[in-house]
């Protein structure tokens, strides 16, 4: 019986590859889009226009306050009612990019706010324009501070991509769900699914930790 299960699993190999490919494609596209939009939103959010800043803040709060699963359902089932036809893949990209943009917006905004005031004053005093101040002085420093949480956020978003399996997209998690119907060994099947995610996420987790350590935490670790 174990042998049969093993054969069943081997037979699912192409499906598993497809699922992994879907997870990677979905994550990659959404992370790139989300990063671009998130940076733009973060810069505008810390800008001088109070109204726009509030609107972005309210949207980010809505997205951070509701489960991703509910967001996917809303996008997938409601946009068609508004006359926007979309397949599950597009819905997944929209939902995940939006989620990424909102979290990255807050990370970037926090990074910008953490740049010491003296830096902006020094840039002001030497006659740099607002655009030059942001480009030359504020953003490079904000980027440096934002990098570790940004990488950590990428890990969370890749994992969140598993939720799109709920609208029938054949990603890694969905493949596990399909295979387990034929090969009734949930422990084995989802352990393998887990390994798939682990291979993608773990290097990023290590990278985030390394970046964090390199930021040089002011106080060293305590030996208790």
């Amino acid at each position: 019986m174990i042998w049969q299960q093993f054969q069943g699993l081997i037979g699912s190999y192409p499906l598993a590859l497809r699922g992994l490919g879907m997870t990677v494609a979905l994550s990659l596209i959404s992370l790139v889009l989300g990063t671009l939009i998130g940076f733009a939103l973060g810069i505008v959010r810390t800008g001088s226009n109070q109204l726009i800043s509030r609107v972005i803040g309210a949207w980010v709060d809505l997205i951070r306050g509701t489960p991703f699963l509910v967001q996917i359902f809303l996008i997938f089932f409601i946009l068609p009612e508004l006359g926007i036809e979309l397949d599950a893949f597009t819905a997944g990209i929209i939902a995940l990019s939006n989620l990424a943009a909102c979290f990255i917006c807050e990370i970037v905004a926090a990074g910008i706010r953490a740049v010491p005031n003296g830096q902006v004053e020094a840039a002001l005093a030497s006659g740099l324009s607002r655009r030059q101040r942001i480009q030359q002085v504020v953003l490079p420093q904000a980027m440096r501070m934002s990098l570790p949480p940004l990488v950590g956020q990428y890990v969370l978003l890749i994992k969140d991509s598993s939720v799109v399996s709920a609208i029938g997209l054949t990603d890694l998690t969905r493949v596990g769900w399909l295979v387990v119907q034929r090969v009734p060994n949930g422990l084995l099947v989802f352990a393998i699914v887990g390994v798939g995610y682990f291979i993608v996420c773990y290097p990023l987790i290590l990278l985030a930790r390394k970046l964090e350590r390199r930021m040089g935490t002011a106080h060293g670790e305590v030996q208790l």
Binding site: G118, Q119, E121, A125, S126, G127, L128, Q136, V137, R144
Partner: peptide
């Protein structure tokens, strides 16, 4: 902005740009 370009300001806490070298700090503006 134009007026400030004509006025040098030296801060108590230096406020050098930490992501730029000494030469880049000097040549940025």
């Amino acid at each position: 902005t134009d007026l400030r370009a004509e006025i040098g300001f030296v801060f108590q806490s230096f406020n050098l740009y930490p992501h730029k070298t000494a030469l880049e700090n000097v040549t940025l503006a």
